[in-house]
């Protein structure tokens, strides 16, 4: 039947073109032009891959900067990206936030509730958010200083050096990448 021939013909024809040729060609070209990005923006330390630049990592040690709460299991699991999906009137949402606020207050000397940005206690959309706001980084300095003995001023300088400004001055807002910050801290601790 003519229609069936057309149905199958057009399906297969387009499949070869956009189902096979397109992704394979794009992969090939990308591997040549942008090999670093195309292979996952690998961040290396002493030759070993310690991070994928855009993917957040879980830090709960006092001596490192903490990222945002992650709803994945375990936290910051790139194989199971997910938000919490908690609705705005869900008791659990408020419990989680309050618990997180309490944790920050307990672990950080001198921290007051009204210094904590909401993003620092609210979980991200992917569970892999690598970034925090500058304020979120600054409020953690007393804790890190206490745990590592690094001068607060040094830590503040590290934070300032790692501020990522809006792209082209337009897109996004100033933030810091937690993995980057912690790499800097790691280097200070392990010279």
């Amino acid at each position: 039947m003519k229609v069936l021939r057309a149905v199958i013909g057009v399906s297969v024809g387009l499949w070869v073109l956009v189902g096979l040729a397109y992704p394979l060609a794009m992969t090939g070209i990308s591997q040549v032009i942008f090999p670093y990005q195309a292979n996952g923006s690998q961040v290396k330390l002493n030759g070993k891959v310690v991070a994928s630049a855009h993917v957040g990592q879980y830090f709960d040690q006092s001596q490192y900067f903490w990222g945002r709460p992650s709803a994945t299991s375990p936290p910051y699991n790139p194989e199971a990206s997910s938000p919490s999906n908690l609705g705005p009137t869900n008791k659990l949402l408020i419990q989680h936030i309050k618990a997180r606020v309490a944790l920050l207050l307990k672990t950080t000397p001198g921290l007051k509730v009204n210094q904590i940005p909401a993003s620092m206690v609210e979980s991200s959309g992917s569970g892999l958010d690598p970034d925090i706001t500058v304020q979120s980084a600054l409020i953690q300095i007393p804790r890190i200083a206490k745990a590592t003995g690094i001068q607060s001023a040094t830590l503040r300088r590290i934070v300032t050096q790692h501020i990522v400004r809006p792209q082209l001055g337009i897109f996004g807002r100033s933030h810091v990448n937690v993995v980057d910050l912690n790499l800097a801290v790691f280097k200070l601790l392990h010279p």
Binding site: L93, I94, S119, E122, Q135
Partner: peptide
Amino acid sequence: IINAIGLHTHANMVGKETRFG
């Protein structure tokens, strides 16, 4: 309800990514 806690900022960042704002 969250604002009542008295945090530094009020924007609802639940489920949102920092880099997008």
